[in-house]
Design a protein around this nucleic acid. Structure first.
Lengths: 203, 203
DNA sequence: AGTTAGTGGTACCGACCGGTAACTCATGGT
DNA sequence: ACCATGAGTTACCGGTCGGTACCACTAACT
């Protein structure tokens, strides 16, 4: 019953379980080539398994897509709370560090922008299971910035947060058409000047 | 030889020529459902014609995609120069009117953001014929804003232009995940405050 | 030993994909 | 009357799509 939980010690993990391999492969391929451009056969092959096993863990490709985005959202949130914890008690530092984290993590790794936003483009159907995931995490990300701006005592916290949020989103999408040396390269600079412009005269 | 040019008088145009109908249908379907999600059969049917005629005018689906984006870019530029002409000689008014035009034209019509940016997401292959079109028009759009900021005598024209550009792009993509009542709703407001912040004390 | 669960392999399904061939029909210019 | 042009119709091609059926295998627990 609980015997499987004893398998959590690292070092024994020669190969990841198929479900994890499939998710990893799917995320990678979806991100690089686009969701519609990647077939389930390619995912299964990249995960060193086959379609049968894939469909034993995910009831459809659409559900697999949704699960990929859910996992991505969880990871992103985990990173974010870690950044917040590193600057506990100082909301402004939390905000700036979080923004820098966004600028680096999302822009530097690859040139394809935010996977959640990309998925939103490829999945216009409002009934698609992945859409709930996308909207949830994007809304949560925006709310978090609003709250941080408010806690930091900045003027016009909502407007500022929206500006910061839109700048980040714009950078992610601009990278794909103009490239990382375009406007997006100055993202951190923009963040800082914008926050400074909303900082009360006290400090 | 030049007889075909005499057919330009309006009123006789009962039905648009097939090529125009195909382009219109393709643009509509690509925008609504995504490029990969729309087949050539659907395009031909929506254009009240058939695949054979489609392939007489476009050598492949990829070329049709590229031509759609080219047409869209031309229309956008035409609208832009019209805005510029309406405020000739006053660069700052040109800039503000252009920004308002972007905010309205691109955000209000439908909820799917910028078609060029969406296409960039769906076509990661750098060799795709449509990528040249996308990068060209996006770069040109950004350069135009930079030039206008400079002509308007605003401080830090390049940085300001990049911020404005990113805000616009961010709004286009955010609409798809959070909706038009989210951050994007305040786009015009953001534009104005940002321009004001870069306006020299003279005015 | 026996059983059970989970994994892998192969073949297959119907549907649809982008793209083509062959043919008909309505023009319209000469 | 002629023929060239372009549009429409039907049928088809090979390939790939998401998804499934069936069977062989291995490991773990009893």
């Amino acid at each position: 019953m609980t015997a499987e939980m004893a398998r959590t010690d690292p070092g024994t993990e020669t190969t990841a379980p198929p479900r994890a391999r499939i998710l990893k492969a799917a995320r990678e391929l979806f991100y690089r080539y686009g969701i519609h451009a990647v077939g389930v056969d390619a995912i299964a092959e990249a995960a060193d398994t086959n379609k049968t096993t894939l469909y034993r863990h995910f009831e459809s490709k659409d559900q697999l897509i949704a699960e990929c985005l859910r996992e991505l959202g969880r990871e992103f949130e985990a990173n974010w709370v870690e950044v917040e914890r590193a600057h506990a008690g100082k909301p402004k530092d939390q905000l700036l560090a979080g923004l820098r984290f966004i600028a680096e993590f999302k822009l530097d790794t690859r040139r394809r922008g935010c996977a959640l936003a990309n998925a939103a483009v490829e999945l216009p159907d409002p009934d698609h299971p992945a859409r709930r995931v996308i909207e949830e995490y994007k809304s949560r990300g925006r709310d978090r910035i609003v709250e941080l701006c408010r806690q930091a005592g900045l003027r016009d916290p909502e407007l500022l947060a929206d500006e910061l949020f839109l700048l980040g989103e714009g950078a992610r999408v601009t990278i794909q058409s103009i490239g990382p040396r375009g406007p997006a390269g100055r993202l951190v600079e923009m963040f800082q000047t914008l926050v400074a412009a909303h900082t009360p005269s006290g400090c």
